[in-house]
């Protein structure tokens, strides 16, 4: 059983969001980088849980990005990946990223490809579905639970206003969210072992961009909260009705 986990580098959830170079680039000054939480807490840890139940499982990691992504790949290896691939392509077009991952996936013939449901920076939520089309494999999105029964995956996913469970034959691509697994912290043995695990660097092979980011913008600052006297809720109702016009 071979599992490929797609890993992305994102700013920490508490990072200050600001832009540089005339609002055309994310301002990386002072930003702490983390593994995208959906990729780490849910996709990677789920793969580790499957390996703990079945020692024949091999976990490969793939990330598409520059050399600055290597610390987060080492962390993912410390958590429990066996081998990692970094494709040296800094494009932020999802299609380019998906094509690079698909090339790795074709080489590896994986039974299971896990991604986070989206990254917390560009929020594209696109890689899993794109891989499905590029590899002609089934895709199940926004999964909250996964079990394997031989060559069958039993997956519970979010639907509008509830959940549904389905079964499908491997190979399958699954995007993961809360419920799949619980966050873990790498231990010292894992950190030491990660230093010698293979991290293969491949050159970028895709360059054509379907989309180009022109600029970023911060939302207009809130004009400031209007405080209402706690003993005068009639006034709050009036404001919601007449000023905000939401009720």
């Amino acid at each position: 059983m071979k599992i490929l986990v797609c890993i992305s580098k994102t700013p920490d959830t508490t990072a200050k969001i600001a832009f540089a170079e005339g609002n055309t680039k994310f301002d990386e000054n002072g930003v702490q980088w983390i593994i995208n939480p959906y990729d780490e807490w849910y996709a990677l840890v789920k793969a580790i849980e499957l390996k703990e139940r079945d020692a024949s499982v091999t976990i490969h990691l793939v990330t598409v990005g520059g050399a600055d992504t290597e610390p987060i790949i080492r962390k993912a290896l410390a958590l429990g990946g066996d081998e990692a691939f970094r494709v040296n392509n800094t494009s932020n077009d999802s299609m380019v990223v998906a094509q690079e991952i698909a090339a790795i996936a074709k080489q590896g013939a994986y039974d299971l490809i896990l991604t986070g449901k989206e990254t917390i920076d560009y929020n594209s939520a696109s890689i899993g579905a794109m891989l499905s089309a590029l590899l002609d494999q089934n895709f199940i999105s926004a999964a909250v639970k996964l079990d394997l029964n031989g060559k069958i995956a039993i997956v519970t996913r979010e639907i509008e206003g509830g959940e549904e469970t389905c079964e499908t034959n491997l190979p399958v691509i699954i995007s993961c969210q809360k419920g799949m697994a619980e966050q873990r912290i790498p231990n010292m043995r894992g950190i030491m072992a990660a230093r010698t695990k293979p991290l293969n660097v491949l050159e970028a092979s895709i360059s054509a961009q379907n989309t180009t980011i022109k600029s970023f913008e911060l939302p207009p600052a809130k004009t400031g909260v209007k405080l209402v006297d706690p003993t005068n809720m009639d006034e709050l109702v009036r404001l919601l009705k007449e000023e905000a016009k939401v009720i």
Partner: peptide
């Protein structure tokens, strides 16, 4: 949920 799951595949 379904739009996110299908639109990127259609894009490919």
């Amino acid at each position: 949920v379904n739009g996110k799951a299908v639109a990127p595949a259609v894009a490919v």
